[in-house]
């Protein structure tokens, strides 16, 4: 047991080197670049809904953009993590790496850090495109409202109110919270992919298992409620208990929709959700580290 914990000593320099390498390698992969391209196209095309009220147009733009960020961010996280670890194992470069003074924990942390960098870069790019589209949309909508005012006449109260509403919705500071939560959610999924990568022998297995956890995670809240409420057969209770214990509650990130819909979500709640994610990440990393240590390479 002593030797087990002794192997937890980490070198930041080595972790950073692995992370940098993972980051550069990820951007050489066509699949990830293609996913990013799709995401950017999806966000750009969210501006095309024009036959609706300004409220709906802004809502669609924000919802579809963040939807694209969530979907493509998740896919990049899962596929990137699965591929990078499995790739090292299959190409036998991992053995070369581990005979140097690089610990398995450092390797995992470096890989995870690299994927985090990939996600940060992808989100920076997607956010830039989203912000650009949002600015264009705001200008279009405001111009349309201004055009309804007759030249030489002052802007009436209703029009002024609509313009103020457009500007308020476009420049909503809560979008920062939505962005933070979307990023955290994708990182959370990447951590699960990391965990499964440590025991899996194929990238497909890691991808499918992680996506399964992701999907079931959105129903964990319902399972937990039913489990704690009791009732049903012992088999049903056992099933619900396993789901509640083994799966994270991705449904809590549903608050994202409310942030985008304009509900005032306090920073306290966001911090609580991020704290939950952080603790879960540490647990997942700890388990991944232990499992990876147990693995024959």
């Amino acid at each position: 047991m002593k030797s087990l914990f002794a192997s937890f000593r980490l070198s930041l320099r080595r972790i950073a080197a692995i992370a940098r390498n993972t980051f550069l390698e990820a951007f050489r992969q066509k699949v990830l670049n293609l996913l990013l391209l799709f995401a950017l196209v999806a966000i750009g095309s969210a501006n095309l809904f024009t036959g609706f009220t300004f409220d709906e147009q802004l809502k669609f733009l924000k919802d579809f953009s963040f939807g694209a960020m969530t979907v493509f961010g998740t896919l990049i996280a899962v596929m990137g993590t699965a591929q990078t670890i499995q790739g090292e194992i299959e190409s036998r470069t991992l053995q070369t790496l581990l005979v140097r003074p690089v610990g398995r924990g450092e390797f995992l942390l470096g890989k995870f850090g690299g994927i985090a960098l990939v996600l940060a870069a992808a989100f920076a790019l997607m956010t830039t495109v989203f912000a650009g589209v949002l600015v264009v949309k705001e200008r279009q909508l405001v111009a349309a409202e201004v055009a309804t005012v007759q030249p030489g006449h002052p802007t009436d109260e209703a029009t002024a109110q609509r313009i103020a509403s457009i500007e308020k919705q476009s420049r909503d500071p809560q979008l920062a919270k939505a962005l933070l939560l979307t990023g955290a959610k994708t990182l959370f999924v990447a951590a699960f992919a990391l965990l499964f990568s440590t025991v899996s022998t194929s990238a497909i297995f890691t991808v499918s298992t992680t996506l399964l956890v992701y999907l079931v995670g959105h129903l964990e809240g319902i399972a937990r409620e039913a489990w704690t409420a009791g009732g049903g057969t012992w088999l049903q209770q056992a099933f619900l208990g396993v789901v509640s214990v083994a799966i994270p509650d991705f449904g809590s990130y549903g608050i994202l929709d409310d942030v985008l819909a304009g509900t005032l979500v306090p920073w306290g709640h966001v911090a609580s959700l991020l704290g939950y994610t952080l603790v879960y990440l540490l647990v997942l990393f700890g388990a991944a580290r232990l499992l990876f240590d147990a693995r024959e390479l």
Partner: peptide, 14 residues
């Protein structure tokens, strides 16, 4: 799935 025989304790701990 592949797990080594060496540190079964590590798996149990995980």
């Amino acid at each position: 799935i592949v797990l080594g025989t060496r540190p079964i304790r590590a798996v149990a701990l995980a």
